[in-house]
Write a protein that binds this DNA or RNA. Structure first.
Lengths: 294, 294
DNA sequence: CGTTGTGATACCTGGCGGGTATCACGAGGT
DNA sequence: ACCTCGTGATACCCGCCAGGTATCACAACG
């Protein structure tokens, strides 16, 4: 009621419009008619005394403040959704622990973790959910998962507590007939500029793509297809080779940064089931431990 | 509309009831009547299919799931409030940067930081807001502040990016007449069990107090009073001594962990004004004056 | 026993969220 | 020029639900 405190409905509406940049489609996506949506957004702008969208008769554009609200609203909606999910799960006594991981990554490590967890009698069952690259953080933030396998330094670990699992070098994945495939090892300089095998470009956090010659991809399966066709070059942690293609060889890239696979969960969330899994993870660690991150 | 996605109104209502543990008072605090509040909470419980409160005719108690929702709801409401505040501020061109700090702490350092920032022509003006101990995180999370002075390892820095400013040892603050005041240095063992000067107990994150003989305090001014009266013993970073009382002496505690004062801001928030302040802060660190470490 | 204080129930009302119909207007086609 | 198409904005109506008042049911005290 007050000028402050927005309702999640308003935020959902705004996010829909900001993402579609089109009132009609946004309304359709929300399952309502367009006029109430227009009204709701105007009301939101009046509430905040801020212009969020530039409407110029032919389409809609975000203002600076609109961009800020879009980012903040997504975070807020994730938090609210997480509140609902976590509350439900807290009431469910024998809920499994949901672990989210990049689909296909760290297979062997995950197997060991699950085995170790299952051997420990007082751990809850673990349910593994795969997701697209870089989506683990949102799964955790929105409460769809309790814990994730992530990778330092590639993933954004801000706001999470972590337990290191293992550290490994990276390899380049090449078609076996390619000239570079015969080399015993490679450097980043070698793989960074191979005319016939440009490195694929992933979307940044804001959804835009970095410049470069490689193809734009945003799902694992797209990438898998490109690699299988020999259209792109991949530099990945050595263990991800479990994700294997025929007619490809893996060559170590000696100067690529080491990748540490970590178990990550929202900071400050201490359920007993999670603690048990973290203990199991700590026990797994083959290489001597580093101090727990803070 | 759907079973999922709660509205912030429901969360505000629930938090009020969960904090007051009393429908009448909660309703009064919310400025509504009691019956609609009862109904809203029941509706919330039905939506989630979870019992949040145990009502037993004489008062109300949180269930386990209720406790989870209380914590999550506070986070969510902070996030929504932050969305509104940050959006408004994004539209305000010459907004000052709001810096929140424990009232009274790090005076000298703060002076230098402000001076350094003011000297840099392209930094926005900085507005300093004091807060109670441990409240900085909520100020940042709820968007009431852009940046904070916090202390590692005492404050919870999860979810924040930080820039270290300075590190220093801790001192015990004692009435000058006390036997321990004559000692050139102390250890934690010395100060941990002084019968006539028990250490004050601060509330934990969940609001409960640790056990012990000392008085329970929750504001700086309460503490100041107790110290001034010679009723409690304080172990604080050396620089906080700027916060001085008559007839007290500071004695170094040699085995207390060093405290690092850091500039902290929500992870992933990159405004140019904030970046300028962080740069100023980094510049400060490289030119330490006579900062006596221990 | 009444008294007091708790949350729950019953019932009414107004506001607002949502719908339909329509307008205003710019961009392109012929 | 004209018309058409697609855009978001406006006008108006309706039904639901948030919120109010009055009251109940019951437990803990004297």
């Amino acid at each position: 009621m007050c000028m402050d405190d927005l309702e999640t409905r308003e935020l959902r509406y705004f996010v829909a419009v900001a993402e579609e940049l089109h009132f009609g489609r946004a309304a359709q996506r929300l399952g309502i008619a367009q006029p109430p949506l227009s009204r709701a957004i105007r009301q939101l702008e009046r509430r905040l005394s801020v212009q969020l969208l530039d409407r110029d008769r032919r389409g809609v554009a975000l203002t600076g403040a609109g961009g800020v609200l879009l980012r903040e609203a997504r975070v807020s909606l994730d938090a609210v959704a997480a509140a609902a999910r976590r509350t439900r799960r807290a009431a469910d006594l024998q809920r499994p622990l949901v672990l989210v991981t990049k689909s296909g990554a760290s297979h062997e490590l995950l197997q060991r973790l699950l085995a170790s967890s299952a051997a420990d009698t007082d751990t809850a069952p673990v349910e593994v959910v795969p997701c697209e690259v870089g989506e683990q953080a949102r799964f955790l933030r929105s409460g769809r998962a309790d814990v994730a396998l992530m990778h330092r330094p590639v993933d954004d670990l801000a706001g999470f507590d972590t337990e290191d699992l293992c550290t490994e070098g990276q390899v380049a994945l090449l078609p076996s007939g390619h000239p570079l495939a015969a080399r015993p090892q490679l450097t980043l300089a070698d793989v960074g500029n191979v005319p016939d095998l440009p490195i694929a470009r992933w979307p940044r956090l804001d959804g835009s793509y970095p410049d470069g010659p490689g193809p734009e991809v945003h799902t694992q399966s797209q990438l898998a297809q490109l690699v299988a066709l020999g259209k792109t070059l991949l530099v990945i942690p050595a263990s991800s080779r479990a994700w294997q293609w025929p007619d490809h060889v893996a060559v170590p890239v000696v100067d690529a940064p080491d990748i540490t696979t970590v178990l990550a969960w929202p900071a400050g969330h201490h359920s007993s089931a999670l603690a048990a899994l973290a203990r199991a993870a700590a026990g797994l660690r083959t290489t001597p431990p580093a101090a727990p991150t803070r």
